[in-house]
């Protein structure tokens, strides 16, 4: 049985930034680790009723995927654009 989670998407110049409200607990670790300050809080709430993150400054995103790596809940995904 394959489980799917809901996805919030932001399309940027280098890739697509995806956050799943079903998984994000709003710890904010990715906000601190993003080297381009792309990620910020949104008004939406996640699985624990806490604010979740979104790509506020998506135009700066370089699709480096550090946020994917540091998310303890695997709530973030980045799909790189094919060159």
């Amino acid at each position: 049985m394959s489980i799917t989670f809901t996805k919030n998407k932001w399309e940027g110049p280098k890739g697509v930034f995806i956050v799943s409200p079903d998984l994000c607990k709003g710890c904010g670790l990715c906000i601190e680790k993003c080297p381009s300050q792309v990620i910020d809080w949104t008004k939406e709430t996640g699985i624990y009723g806490t604010p979740i993150v979104g790509a506020k400054r998506i135009d700066r995103c370089t699709a480096c995927s550090i946020c994917v790596l540091v998310c303890p809940d695997a709530a973030i995904d980045v799909e790189k654009n094919k060159m």
């Binding site: 049985m1 394959s2 489980i3 989670f5 079903d22 998984l23 607990k25 709003g26 710890c27 904010g28 670790l29 699985i47 624990y48 806490t50 303890p72 809940d73 695997a74 709530a75």
Partner: peptide, 11 residues
């Protein structure tokens, strides 16, 4: 995948 989100605290 069925057991996610896992049970640990945020962060």
């Amino acid at each position: 995948r069925e057991t996610k989100p896992h049970k640990f605290c945020p962060g």
